[in-house]
Amino acid sequence: MSPTPYLVLASILFTIGGTGVLLRRNALVAFMSVELMLNACNLAFVAFARMHGDIDGQVAAFFVMVVAAAEVVVGLAIIVTIFRTRRSASVDDASLLKL
């Protein structure tokens, strides 16, 4: 099989995700964009695994999912806490950590 269509799709998804992270102010949307980028990577991993006929890429995809799940747990908790204290989920408002 040819992996090209999958890789093109993965690239499009990754670009959409990256653009979302860079452009959207809402923390939840940025978070979802990050998830989109991770899943674009997963798609590439799985496509390559299928191309080579082994399971290394699929194992890597599982690891990414586990890490993403853990990240969601921690990240969402932080976002909710910030929202509670500041009544805002904009990432630009949380810019106090600077010199």
Binding site: G18, V21, L22, L23, R25, A30, V91, D92, A94, S95, L96, L97, K98, L99
Partner: peptide, 17 residues
């Protein structure tokens, strides 16, 4: 050099990219 530390997450993301 300090100017780079803006505190804006999105600019950090851009520099990572």
């Amino acid at each position: 050099l300090r100017r780079w530390q803006t505190g804006f997450v999105r600019s950090y993301a851009l520099s990572m990219l």
